[in-house]
Design a protein around this nucleic acid. Structure first.
Length: 450
DNA sequence: TCACCAAATGCCTCGCGCTG
DNA sequence: CAGCGCGAGGCATTTGGTGA
């Protein structure tokens, strides 16, 4: 007769001959107390040699195969042991019920011989594995039921995500480790040894892990997108900062210009002192210098003006506007505010831009339903005014005259725009006239030919 | 061809007087 | 005193003409 025994010391289950149990002579299969603590020898080696261990008898049978039948038919129930009997709090779990399958395999190979170390370690591995699997939600007396196994996963799903993730990760890691040990112990029988229930559970866990992986990947992707957006915002913020800095600079300069017009001292140091220095510069001398420079174009170098930065053959007028140095020098030599303003406008915007723009963006009142043309950039207009101011202030210190001359900037630019459009219209007229002439010639030729 | 000027048009702002 | 109407002046735009 064989007894299905669970050892308290390591919570391992074995199918052993009843002769291994001390003072135990059962008459029939129910002749045992599952709440009683028996002393059982783990092996038959050397008879009953070795120290007996405290154990619980779960079942009796004539053959080991009967244990397997009991388990597969879900007949065997494993009672919960009270601490008073064993001194340890022992909870039953699936592992205990599945043990016979392992032992059955091992025993069937050895046919009743003492369990080998490898099969023992295999059993230990599976026991640990299944304890982990069941510990999350299983307690007390439970039948071995595959439906219940499925509930393990479902119950776990109901739990908090983080807890679930952590638990599953831990669980899976342990399972993987145990599997590795399992394979190392009995490499040739590893595949055959893994029970179907365990296999399904592992598959289930694997799928859960895959699900978790997908979730983490999605989260990673989301985080990456957020990072990209943050980077974009940072970039925009940087450009805005630059713009604000420029605007501040413009504002300072404008304030100083206005204050100078009112006859006050400029408040700011940067750039404005230069403007003031230019104001007091002798006009005749400046003109003579220009003339001299024009005559000796090869060695032409304009008097340095700190308000305009020269770099790489270009002159910075402010506000990020750069013009070619040579053109700028030519512009300095032009006579009259009107020409100066118009040429400067062409340098800054170009004729292509100017022909489709108006100074302020106001539609003409002469034509009804006239569509307004887009205005010129106010900041660039301001630069034009400042350039003209620099020029005018070299010629006169009379603030009234300066104001009066500066007030014509819009008018000059407007005129330039009209002149450009006039030229385009004239060109179109000439082309159409030419076309008409050619057509007439062709017609005459045709008639003459006929 | 281009710079410059004059005239015309229509909208907007401001000042002034009137009224309740 | 607030609200309203009216006229003057300014401004932007367009067109047409003139002269270098």
């Amino acid at each position: 007769m064989y007894a299905f025994i669970r050892f308290f010391e390591d919570d391992m289950c074995y199918a052993l001959p009843v002769s291994n149990v001390e003072d135990f002579r059962p008459l029939h299969k129910t002749d045992f107390d599952n709440q009683k603590v028996y002393l059982v020898h783990r092996t038959e080696e050397n008879g009953s040699a070795g120290q007996p261990c405290e154990a619980q008898i779960l079942a009796l049978a004539d053959t080991v195969e009967e244990f397997e039948d009991s388990i597969t038919q879900k007949k065997m129930k494993i009672p919960k042991m009270s601490t008073k009997n064993s001194g340890n709090s022992i909870e039953n779990n699936f592992g205990e019920e599945r043990m016979p399958l392992r032992h059955k395999k091992a025993l069937s190979q050895d046919h009743g011989r003492p369990l080998s170390n490898s099969s023992k370690s295999l059993a230990a591995v599976v026991a640990r594995l299944e304890r982990n699997a069941a510990s999350s939600c299983m307690e007390g007396e439970e039948d071995l039921d595959e439906d219940r196994l499925a509930e393990v996963g479902e119950d776990a799903d109901d739990e908090d995500d983080d807890m679930e993730t952590e638990h599953q990760r831990h669980h899976h890691q342990q399972q993987q480790q145990h599997l590795a040990v399992d394979t190392d112990c009995v490499p040739e029988v590893a595949a055959a040894v893994v029970p179907r229930v365990l296999y399904e559970e592992l598959v289930h866990s694997y799928r859960q892990q895959e699900e978790e992986m997908r979730r983490l990947q999605q989260e990673l992707e989301r985080t990456r997108r957020q990072l990209v957006q943050q980077a974009k915002k940072l970039k925009e913020y940087g450009s805005l900062l630059t713009e604000v800095k420029e605007l501040r600079d413009f504002n300072r300069r404008l304030q100083d210009v206005l204050l100078m017009r009112l006859g006050s001292e400029p408040m700011h140091d940067n750039g404005t002192q230069t403007i003031k220095a230019e104001v007091v510069e002798p006009i005749v001398e400046a003109q003579e210098t220009c003339r001299e420079e024009a005559n000796t174009s090869s060695s032409y170098s304009p008097s340095p003006r700190t308000v305009y930065t020269c770099n790489d053959g270009k002159v910075h007028l402010g506000g990020g506007i750069w013009v070619e140095e040579e053109k700028w020098h030519q512009l300095q030599r032009t006579q009259g505010d009107s020409k100066f303003t118009k040429n400067l406008a062409v340098m800054i915007w170009g004729t292509e831009t100017l022909k489709n723009r108006s100074v302020t963006g106001v539609a003409t009142k002469k034509k009804k339903d006239a569509l307004p043309k887009p205005p010129l950039s106010p900041s660039k207009l301001k630069i034009v005014r400042e350039c003209l101011y620099d020029r005018v202030s070299q010629e006169t210190a009379d603030s009234a005259e300066i104001t009066q001359r500066l007030s014509k900037v819009n008018k000059y630019i407007c005129e330039k725009i009209m002149d450009i459009n006039k030229s385009i219209k004239n060109e179109e007229r000439r082309e159409s006239k030419l076309l008409i002439r050619q057509t007439v010639k062709m017609e005459n030729f045709t008639y003459d030919g006929i």
